[in-house]
Design a protein around this nucleic acid. Sequence first.
DNA 1: GCGCGTTGTTCACCACTTGGAAACGAGGCC
DNA 2: GGCCTCGTTTCCAAGTGGTGAACAACGCGC
Lengths: 141, 141
Amino acid sequence: MLLVAPDAPPPLPVDPLEDWVRLPADDRDLQARMATLSARADVDLAQPDLDEDGLLRYRGRWTALSPVERLLASALVERFGAVVSREGLARRAWPTGAPTRNALDVHMLRLRRRIEGLSLEVRTVRSRGYLLQDAYADRRP
Amino acid sequence: MLLVAPDAPPPLPVDPLEDWVRLPADDRDLQARMATLSARADVDLAQPDLDEDGLLRYRGRWTALSPVERLLASALVERFGAVVSREGLARRAWPTGAPTRNALDVHMLRLRRRIEGLSLEVRTVRSRGYLLQDAYADRRP
DNA sequence: GCGCGTTGTTCACCACTTGGAAACGAGGCC
DNA sequence: GGCCTCGTTTCCAAGTGGTGAACAACGCGC
């Protein structure tokens, strides 16, 4: 955030995480621009984190996961925002062989329910796999 | 670009392609902010991207495509903004021979519906083929 | 032993994909 | 105008894949 002197030429910041105001500036305006930058940074930088205790943390909130859910979540977090195949998930959760095709579906359902409160969501990409993303990622303008 | 009345509260546009100034505004400042948005738009005016998982991504949003739609979209994305003939599309989607003349039309309709939310559109060029472009491409100056 | 969370299984149901058919409309050509 | 082609749109049917509820078994802490 740059504060530009009254008679200085305006800057041209291409980076969406930079902005400027000309002095003297209304304090509400400065606060609004700061809040905008902060909101952009949050959306861009937020990365879920799965700590060593099996806690899934995202944007200040957290949930405890069951062992199988933790394995599934670890694969999804590693490729946050990208598709992870059903086989990849199954191998991660059951390295020695998955019990049933449907077991994965059921655990994905349970994982979904558990991460609802973190504003995270698991999206299905039919016949390709699943994808973890911010719950509001594609409701942005 | 919003022009905010002297006593109105400032907006909070998260979209990096939006901005605002408070009136009365220095004309140089307004021009500078317009130029910044324009520069961002140029950088951001990237091609749509069809990733390896069959997801069509454009300007931060994405949609999953069905297998046939993915093949059609791949041909259109390769020549983004240019016409692709019906035969070209048909050969891409059904290398061994198209099922019916109408099949292509029906799939193009479905592809259109699906990419609506990405601000992409398929335009018809009668008796020549189809063309993929930004939905607002010809509303811009 | 008891209660609770976790795990796996089954099954009914729903949603998506695809191709086929047909109605409809717009335009060009005679 | 009449006719034809091209394109749009809706409907249907079959096959496939994903969802979600219900249930039973297991293990662990108290």
